[in-house]
Design a protein around this nucleic acid. Structure first.
Lengths: 166, 166
DNA sequence: CCCGAGCTTGAGCAGATTGCTCAATTTCGG
DNA sequence: CCGAAATTGAGCAATCTGCTCAAGCTCGGG
């Protein structure tokens, strides 16, 4: 059964295998997970189509010459969120934008070539009509690399009681 | 030439093809990029080994039953960053932790099943020795989905003048 | 300008994998 | 208990992979 998501334990096991071998063959995945090749193929195709996020997430900005990462929070004029978002989408260095709760409205994930470039990108964002004020937090260090295997393993376990994360 | 990164225009073109077809065959990639099959294979193997981030980044937490995303900022007792980071790494719902500049020290990317669960996760983080105070910003909406193709396209273009991002 | 290291190419080939169909079986929810 | 959906295993032609090898190209250093 799924824990309120769309991925069941079999899919979770396929995904765990893919974290270790992203370009594993369908046959290899089937063998490791213990399902038939046809099932592996069908499930993989379905996850590629419906479940998995874009491959772009695997491309580190640093390898493209953008080693600086920063989070810019922004307060936005009321009711102009959508047009601000549209303007932000035209800035190549903006990777992702979340609308968040609290005193500021947006969390903007940006990258830059260096400190000067970050200044330029931040200035460009502040210049967008509707952006009232911003604050930039530069990422100094990655303390915990992105990982989701703990949650994947929870889903992958057969017969597990709900959410015993400790 | 590379723009200060480790990926050259040919690699960038391979990556662009992979954003459209993540499980494309090496032969298909070679054809689309216009390089030989051996070269495609060698470059792909090298990027899988040295360049690309983990496949885990493609797994959306929501499909595992964690539809809520939040960013928790935390101020930490001086000199205890590493042990706090180590403790955070033991919390499955913590996906990623950045050390940032400014009045707070950490940006913690977490997920939760629902509001109650977020409360529990935030409480668990605040309970870590060395975490002095936290602030939770709940993601209400994704305004710009993660994308890096604008930067990839810049690198993929042959003969382009430096960084004409506009 | 020349040279050499490194990269790329195309050919080749045995083995592996894929994409798909199909009938039979199993699973699971109503 | 029943029926829909999922899974399985078999099968097969087509495609792909992994790798070697020799030849050619690119590019940086001397």
């Amino acid at each position: 059964m799924t824990h309120g998501g769309t991925v069941d334990p079999t899919d979770a096991r396929i995904l765990l295998e893919l974290t270790e071998h992203p370009r594993a063959t369908t046959l290899a995945l089937a063998d490791r997970v213990g399902i038939s090749r046809n099932t592996a193929q069908a499930r993989l195709a379905r996850m590629e189509r419906d479940t998995l996020a874009s491959f772009e997430r695997r491309v580190p900005p640093a390898v493209l010459g953008y080693p600086l990462t920063a989070f810019i929070t922004a307060a936005v004029t009321q009711r102009r969120l959508d047009e601000v978002a549209a303007a932000l989408a035209t800035v190549p260095e903006v990777l992702e934008v979340h609308g968040i709760s609290g005193p500021v409205d947006l969390m903007i994930h940006v990258v830059a070539r260096d400190a000067d470039d970050l200044y330029r990108v931040a200035g460009r964002i502040l210049a967008i009509p509707g952006v009232e004020r911003t604050n930039t937090a530069l990422v100094m260090r990655q303390l915990v690399d992105y990982r989701i295997t703990p949650l994947l393993r929870q889903e992958a376990e057969p017969g597990e009681a709900d959410a015993t994360s400790e």
